[in-house]
Design a protein around this nucleic acid. Structure first.
Lengths: 140, 140
DNA sequence: TATTGTTATACTCTATAACTATA
DNA sequence: TATAGTTATAGAGTATAACAATA
């Protein structure tokens, strides 16, 4: 039987290429805001609230020691602040400053806008299917 | 009208999160092979044939000067080779050595396997829709 | 003059290992 | 003893600017 059925590797390949495309897009939107993609990611993760170093390193998938220097650089620019934990004197919480919050939202909005452009030509039903499929992948 | 219609930002958010997930997965598959994700990307791009520095830098979205040092490191490990262009004495072609070709295929296969695991629970029709949607995004 | 690629430099990202302070 | 976070160190990724050689 010969059909136009997609192979597994077509989906894998499409996903990998999409990843690279989105990475580029992410870099292009961060840069004019004076941020590396990694810094933009960190700031955006903090939008939903302050986090400790250990939890933040887990979310960003980097070692705590790597995070220390990232936070140092952002703190020097007054985009984040280390706040002492009231309950654990070893720990601190990283939180966005007012300037950091503003920049984080700019990053977030810029990326969402760019992606909206990329996906705007898809039919609504396809967008729906795409969204649900990706969410189910992410839920694993 | 109140429905469960997904917002644009849900799709954008799902795409961004998928990007991060795939980045992690890519890093996890490259690392045991002794490669950074960027090195793995470079090797995989060369699977389809040798490329000049300028074209390779365009494909990887990095400056040529950044690429020079990446190629230096890979060449020192005998994974790629600089071959003089026969037609342009300024230019060179970067090509995979036998070891580089082997490693590139290992990288490629490892990523495809991991992604297949991620997507294996989706219905065939959804996989098809997903693949076509991503391909149409990439075609832009 | 324009293009190909490299060199020099500076900064960021990242991991590993060893460490301090607190729980 | 275990955990939170930092320091020290080394290597890799990246951009900018200036450069050499060739087209």
């Amino acid at each position: 039987m010969v059909t136009t059925t997609a192979r597994d590797s077509d989906l894998a390949s499409a996903l990998v290429q999409t990843m690279h495309r989105l990475q580029d897009l992410h870099a292009e939107t961060s840069r004019p805001l004076g941020l590396t993609p990694q810094q933009a990611h960190l700031l955006c993760v903090l939008i939903s609230g302050p986090l400790g170093m250990t939890e933040l390193s887990r979310i960003l998938s980097i070692e705590r020691s790597s995070l220390t220097s990232m936070v140092d650089r952002l703190e020097r620019r007054d985009l984040v602040a280390r706040v002492a934990s009231p309950t654990d004197r070893r720990a601190c919480r990283i939180e966005l400053t007012a300037a950091g919050k503003d920049l984080a939202h700019q990053c977030h909005d810029a990326v969402v806008d760019r992606i909206r452009d990329l996906t705007s030509e898809l039919p609504a039903a396809t967008r729906q299917t795409l969204t649900k499929a990706l969410q189910s992948i992410l839920a694993q």
